[in-house]
Design a protein around this nucleic acid. Structure first.
Lengths: 336, 336
DNA sequence: CTGAAAGCGCTAACAC
DNA sequence: GTGTTAGCGCTTTCAG
């Protein structure tokens, strides 16, 4: 493997000093056009590119933003990530992405590694284990020295800059939508009952239903997807029980399974069960029927997160801002 | 924002030299247990973490692997990426991911940035524009100084370490599968005719069909997905034309649209059109009907890519190895 | 217009 | 067992 050429070697070949080469490469007005040309030509010839690590160390700035994500397979997070990258780049920053697999240990490690010189600031979606363990100290420690923005998942102890989605509002809007279409029996399905966000969504659903005399609610929560499918199919095909008018999916998986169950059991149109849930937008557009869904605007989440972080990088004093993105129900084929 | 503490400051507080602190932190046997304890305690107290940039510069090694991906929304690439990350971590490496958006300029820039000190080696899926422009010099230049592994997309000029998928075989296996189920008229649908991989797939399909007297082939290629949907629906519902027995989807989008079109037009079972194509595995499992698909083993691609790269990092001399992953047809609901 | 020298934070050979 | 020192590749002040 060929060795990479350094400024020093270029200087030697040209019989000038390293500082001259450095200045020439950076187009300093101190250097004559002639020398600049000479230096640049040789640099190009040898394929010189400044060593990024050395520049970072010297300048104490990397133009890197760290991003920590629980899971890349989560299409919402993937879309946020994409948008973080786009907006970071637009502002002259690169991103360094770590995945935690929802593990607290990985999250801690990622924060530690990133926060020491690698990046100027960090955008992080806290992992599930963090919420289970109610352990937020690693964030607090890091936030003392490194600008931090959390997104998507919130907790009162996570009082940093954050961008989240109005989750309660999503559920309430979906319920209200069902109500306006005369649904009576609403089934809440979830494969994420163990996740804090899953718990909140269920609680919000239940609270709403209890407050509405005209509505009746049922819940199916099951982590195992095959089991979940079975339970949903059993329920919606069981004619001995009151008919389900609408299903609210608490996550992508349960929404898809509900959609599949309705399709598979070929339920006649007259008995159509409405369905609203969470989906991968791109995918949803291409399937039939397209599910009516809760749009969480991942583009906005990504953009805002970058915006908040960069604002914090520039300001000297630290400002705390908590953005909440409003969601909307997008009516497609599975509801009126 | 609080300043991060350095080794120097710890040394001053403890009235020892920086090297003592450094050695103590790195558990050098030269240092007494007592001093180690003293140093470590203070380090912990002040939340000291070594500056990664400085360590990298000093050691001339970063334990970073660069990954360059055209598009994170592509579920195949996302899954490969996830597996690259997992296997990199397993070997003690972090990954730094850049997205090119299929743009040659971005690809060039990403390679340049990564190759100078940031990473030890690079895993890259070359972007489409690279193939359109037939411009491979940026890879060749980088490969002279930085270990490189390309994956997924290949070209005879890209003669580096690579992991690719046996694309021809995928198409041939699908055709053979249709043939074995007595299909006569096969429709090839594609939304990626403009992409090199799309061209190859179509060519392979056509060549096979022409060689088989018992088979008849048709092709619908259309970049605009709404148009594509219309064309597919028109074709499969047009009873004045010979009936389509099977559809081969050349990419995820056209496969999904075909599936949706069949479902939407409620084609009776007796006229069932078989469908094989490319899918997002996770998603496919949850929908109904689940599409019979070509498994490209993204896990293997990611794992092999890391393996090849690390092999190259360790060996002094450079070895070139071109891995080809065999695919398989996974029969689900849309074919016999 | 060019060069010498200091220093970013850390490690490690070498001295004591 | 601990300290001194040089140096990784680069930028930048200051001197000439």
């Amino acid at each position: 493997m060929k060795k990479k050429i350094t400024i020093k070697e270029i200087a030697k070949i040209l019989m000038v000093s390293v500082s001259t080469v450095s200045k020439a490469m950076n187009d300093s007005p101190e250097i004559s056009e002639k020398t600049k040309k000479k230096v640049k030509e040789l640099a190009k010839f040898y394929g010189y590119v400044p060593n990024h690590i050395a520049v970072s160390l010297k300048n104490q700035s990397t133009f890197n933003i760290g991003v920590i994500i629980p899971d890349i397979q989560n299409s919402f997070l993937a879309e946020v990530l994409k948008n973080i990258e786009v907006h970071a780049k637009k502002n002259g920053y690169r991103i360094i992405t770590f995945f935690t697999g929802e593990k607290l240990k990985e999250e801690r490690e990622s924060l530690n590694i990133l926060s020491n010189g690698m990046v100027e600031g960090i955008i992080v979606c806290p992992c599930e284990e963090t919420f289970v363990e109610k352990e937020f100290n690693h964030f607090k420690n890091i936030a003392e020295t490194t600008p931090l923005v959390t997104f998507d998942r919130i907790h009162k102890e996570l009082n940093f800059n954050s961008v989240s989605v109005d989750d309660d509002q999503s559920i309430l809007k979906a319920c209200a939508h069902f109500q306006s279409t005369q649904a009576k029996n609403i089934l809440f399905v979830s494969s994420i009952g163990w996740l804090s966000v899953g718990k909140t969504r269920r609680r919000t659903f239940n609270t709403f239903i209890e407050g509405e005399a005209s509505l009746n609610g049922e819940t199916i929560e099951e982590h195992n997807l095959e089991e979940l499918r079975k339970k949903i199919e059993d329920r919606i095909t069981d004619t001995s029980l009151p008919k389900i008018d609408a299903i609210l999916g608490a996550d992508i998986e349960s929404t898809l399974i509900s959609n599949a169950s309705i399709a598979k059991n070929n339920i006649p149109l007259i008995d159509r069960i409405s369905l609203i849930g969470y989906v991968d937008k791109n995918h949803n557009e291409l399937q039939y029927p397209r599910v009516s869904y809760i749009n969480q605007f991942p583009e906005k989440v990504g953009e805002k997160a970058v915006e908040l972080l960069i604002k914090n990088l520039k300001e000297e004093q630290k400002i705390i801002q908590q953005e909440v993105i409003k969601t909307e129900i997008v009516v497609k084929d599975t509801s009126k």
